[in-house]
Amino acid sequence: MFRWRRKKDPRRNYLNKMAIGLGAGIVKAREVLLNPDMVDPQAAMDILGTWIGQELAKELLAQKVIAPNESSESLLEKLLEEVRIAEDLAIDFEGGTAHISVQNCLICPRKVGGYDLEGYTACPVGGIVRGAVGFVSGKPPQLSRIDLKTGELCKVDFALDAE
């Protein structure tokens, strides 16, 4: 018999939280996810990413990496620092819109994972950022434009002042 015991390690807790968000998202969105007329791979990833992002934000709050009144800009910086979803993430605010540019993404299923996505996209960045910002601010931002060029420069626009 083999038995391993490890103490909870906050630094490794993000992976656990991602799994929790994924599980919760699959259950809550099961009716939508199982209906191919309602959802395509990117839409499914948006939904699951939102749940994962919420869980990551909870962990950032629990570890006091962020405060409940954290600005969206600061939250994104700390999310990037802690979870490393990309090597280069830029955010540019224009009125109530945040333009996010992702270069050298580290969670791209196609570029990093090497999977043939059969012409689809399945970018988790938009959902994760939306879920995290929405959880902390209490107002899920509206994803107004997603322009994905996998492996190159992906852009996601958020309306941060959406109710």
């Binding site: 395509d40 990117q42 839409a43 939904i47 938009g126 994803l143 107004s144 997603i146 994905l148």
Partner: peptide
């Protein structure tokens, strides 16, 4: 619209 957010696309 394939990469649009699910709400927008719907």
């Amino acid at each position: 619209e394939k990469s649009s957010f699910i709400l927008d696309k719907t």
